[in-house]
Amino acid sequence: MRLTVNGTEHEVDVTSDMPLLWVLRDELNITGPKYGCGIAQCGACTVHVDGFAVRSCQLAVGDLAGGHVTTIEGLASPEGLHAVQEAWIEHQVAQCGYCQSGQIMQAASFLETNPEPTDEDIDAAMSANLCRCGTYPRIRAAVHAAAKKLQEA
């Protein structure tokens, strides 16, 4: 089976029902996407497929259908970090950090479709990503800051 991750094509020999998450982590050693729950409750495994946020623990690799996968490792461009990553660092969002690659991927996808979100929009978009350390207030602030950066860019 072939799949494209962060612009690189890979060949893997796995069953088609294997979740993309485990193909990335255990077969390709791309470990930014994290295993937290396996049932779409936490969002730590969030990646982009053709630009849209997807919980990689819920997408069977056989159903990728040629979609291009971007993980947190592929979010930055050669010119520098993505605006969401910059905002996360400026606001010192992460504590343990385990959920944050999923949070950042979710925020980046959300800001593509909703570039000027209100607090309520952020609450609707980001509440399916669980953070057990309780970094939510800074996530809210960092999403606003990232939106501003993207507007100015």
């Binding site: 779409a40 849209f52 399916a128």
Partner: peptide, 16 residues
């Protein structure tokens, strides 16, 4: 689409 797509978690399952 405006916030969090249903398909983010309810992914499309074409096979099996």
């Amino acid at each position: 689409v405006e916030y969090l797509q249903c398909s983010t978690c309810h992914t499309t399952k074409d096979t099996d």
